[in-house]
């Protein structure tokens, strides 16, 4: 049993939120004394990630995701608990540690705006001391996979969002870090670009056994890329298992969309769990358990209501996650 590449043990992060006052003199005063309150961002998190995994990390805004990622990047240090990544303590040896890390932040860019991406790649080469032969080889490999041979020679400000994201990805991978954090990598992209990038991530993960941690709000990213998913809510881990289990968790919940032949009143639908209703359409949810079968539930609907059309679906994964967020 190999040692996980990331180990977080009983990690806590609370910090002081300072009351920032307006005004020049007040700012000067604040050098001597500041008012603050304590905020718990992360509460006893335990997390292990294996080498070569593609892990999804999701949670509502403000749940503690970015705090966790920052601690794993070495930008933040925990109030208590242990973090070990690739055998190093991130914030203690930050300058050595970040040489083995690749990061893509969806909204922040590493690429220089006025120059072609290939110039920023050259900078990465110098900063991470990548040998020239290896650099050329990797650049070839990545640019062919993402089809950016021409794109990378145009100034970044002229690129579309999809093209830019591809270049950002290459930027983060040129020094072949064993661990890569992707924060919202497909945000704002069209369907085809999303597909290309996901394929790319999967390919690199296969070829180079790179570990990926992906924070995203896009659940189709999750479904396509991640085997395991960790859900963080209110600073704690509320789910840490495979995606399959997540689906199965709720697969006994069904959602039925019904269209009626003539308007019905809400009374006639009493006893059913309604997700939405208007006199001509309704969305009904039901849970199958020991006491009922699909035949019984659907039978009841078909017998008691004037059904014109009916659609039966599993509860969508968005619903699942929403319910977890709200719990």
């Amino acid at each position: 049993m190999s040692v996980p590449i990331i180990q977080m043990h009983d990690v806590n992060k609370t910090y002081k939120v300072y009351h920032r006052e307006e005004g020049f003199l007040a700012s000067l005063r604040s050098v001597i004394h500041r008012e603050y309150k304590m905020l718990t961002a992360v509460d006893d998190i335990n997390l292990n990630i294996e080498l070569g995994e593609v892990r999804g990390l999701i949670g509502p805004n403000g749940a503690g995701k970015s705090t966790t990622i920052k601690m794993l990047s070495g930008i933040l240090h925990p109030s208590s608990g242990d973090i070990s990544v690739m055998g190093m303590i991130p914030w203690k040896e930050r300058e050595r540690y970040v040489r083995n890390l690749g990061v893509v932040f969806g909204q922040k860019s590493q690429l220089w705006w006025d120059l072609p991406a290939v110039d920023t790649f050259g900078l990465q080469k110098e900063m991470y001391r990548i040998p020239t032969a290896a650099f050329r080889q990797r650049l070839d490999y990545f640019s062919r996979m993402l089809n950016i041979e021409e794109v990378m020679r145009k100034p970044v400000r002229l690129l579309s969002l999809g093209e830019r994201m591809k270049c950002e990805l290459v930027c983060a991978m040129l020094h072949e870090p064993p661990l890569i954090f992707l924060d919202e990598p497909t945000i704002g992209l069209d369907v085809i670009s999303k597909e290309t990038i996901r394929q790319f991530i999967k390919q690199v993960n296969r070829d180079k056994k790179t570990t990926f941690i992906i924070t995203t709000h896009d659940l189709s990213d999750l479904e396509d890329l991640c085997e395991r998913v960790t859900i963080i809510n209110k600073g704690t881990v509320v789910f840490d298992d495979t995606l399959e289990k997540l689906r199965v968790y709720f697969s006994h919940k069904k959602v039925v969309d019904v269209k009626f032949t003539h308007p019905v009143t809400e009374d006639e639908l009493s006893g059913l769990s309604l997700k939405s209703f208007n006199p001509l359409m309704a969305t009904i949810e039901f849970t199958m358990d020991d006491s009922s079968t699909i035949r019984q539930e659907l039978g009841r609907i078909l017998e008691t209501l004037p059904v014109q059309d009916i659609n039966v679906n599993n509860i969508r994964i968005e619903e699942v996650i929403k319910q977890i967020y709200l719990a």
Binding site: S73, G74, R94, V103, K108, Q110, Y128
Partner: peptide, 11 residues
């Protein structure tokens, strides 16, 4: 508050 990139850069 945008010092993230500055911290992640090995320079």
């Amino acid at each position: 508050g945008e010092l993230t990139m500055d911290f992640l850069r090995p320079l």
